[in-house]
Design a protein around this nucleic acid. Structure first.
Lengths: 223, 223
DNA sequence: TGTACATCAGTGAACGCGCGTTCACTGATGTAC
DNA sequence: TGTACATCAGTGAACGCGCGTTCACTGATGTAC
């Protein structure tokens, strides 16, 4: 019997239980208040067993960030398919532009919100600790975040010709989109109880303004 | 002699020393890692003396937030005087609008950056803990932040006719401006060493796009 | 002026507690021959 | 097939440490009379 594989699966299961326990504790007390003992206790193992899985708390934190990163990559891949990119002609009225923009912003916000709500504590950690005090965590989050922004910038640049081909401008727009959408989700989901189903309309309108400005600016430069 | 006043001044001085010590420790380890003993130690008093000033750590945290709030109010009052509000006529070109907008966004960002740099650790705490886990702190920050946004929205609404008279839209724009400017300052000033003099140009451009979109939208609605 | 009392920032000893980490151990499983 | 050895997730006792909080105390200052 391949019982060695079973053993590996069992270990993986325990590691994941530690992560789930840590997320629950984070939601209550914050990442900085995590202790090895409290996480182990909640996961139902002895404190010393923690060391079989991670060398220290922050190593588990980095593993958590990796899970968030994978989920965000999956989100963006899905969002990309649902977003329609505005094909705007010179002389189009702002109303027409706005209608086109909404075909992008609505699915963008809707899918992001779904992604966040699928594991609010994980993403709260991700965005909260992006400016936190744990260096390992912060750099892991910064890396993941930069990748996400570049990814979104590439999508904006390639899909439709409405947005700037200039890579820096595309990055700037992508960064602001992530900033707005993550900020809105953070301020509406406070620990320990994450309120779901908050209104997304204001978030969409904010993104609309940003992208309308970007479209107008691009059009102006082309003339 | 009015030595009773001297005594009160001395007490106030010690309280402020506690706050300064706490800010230093926050910059290194984060607010959640503050301990009564470490703060007292850094301030040069006995642990038990802490109770002569605050009933608990979070009461000191709230006092810190109040100082941040006062500084932010001062900032906005100063920024208001330096900002020029775009007077835009129907038919103005986007370039002309953008030039007018920059007379608002540049002083806005410059004064905010100055304000932040005057006490980076205090403002890092303020924006970091706005979505943190300490309930007392979070609600104090939320209150201060809401006031700031309403204040800015009022300024936008009254000064110049370019921006929406609709209070909800003005609030939305103000909120996004604060979000962008604080996010950019946070991602460029990581603890414990706060890097000053980071480039503000991208922040200005982000705000430009947002306000250009807002101007265009307003103009469209008026026609 | 002198005396008795009140106020209050700051102190140091002492408490019990949860923490991270070490160590030698167990017991299930796989491998070599 | 049997036997000896290796691997490794999980364990429980033990350690020293910093923590928040209590308590009775000090000593400077102000007040009542």
């Amino acid at each position: 019997m391949a019982s060695r594989n079973e053993a590996k699966q069992q270990k993986e299961k325990t590691s994941q239980a530690l992560i789930e326990s840590a997320l629950e504790l984070c939601a209550e007390e914050g990442y900085a208040s995590l202790s090895l003992r409290s996480v182990a206790r909640k996961a139902g193992i002895a404190p010393t067993s923690f060391y079989r899985h991670f060398r220290e708390i922050d190593e588990m934190g980095v593993a958590m960030v990796e899970q968030a990163k994978e989920a965000l990559d999956g989100w963006l891949a899905g969002a990309r398919k649902k977003m329609t990119f505005p094909g705007v002609k010179a002389g189009d009225s702002p109303e027409k532009m706005l209608a086109a923009i909404e075909l992008l912003t609505r699915p963008f916000v809707a899918t992001f919100t779904d992604c966040f709500n699928a594991n609010p504590r994980l993403f709260h950690l991700f965005f909260q600790e992006s400016s936190g005090c744990a260096p390992l965590l912060r750099s892991a989050i910064t890396d993941a975040s930069d990748g996400l922004i570049r990814n979104l910038a590439g999508i904006l640049k390639r899909s439709g010709k409405a947005f700037p081909g200039n890579i820096d401008e595309a990055n700037m727009i992508a960064e602001t989109m992530i900033t707005i959408v993550s900020r809105n989700v953070m301020e509406n989901s406070s620990p320990p109880n994450f309120q779901l189903n908050y209104p997304t309309e204001p978030t969409i309108q904010k993104l609309n303004l940003l992208l309308l400005g970007a479209l107008i600016l691009k059009q102006t430069k082309q003339e």
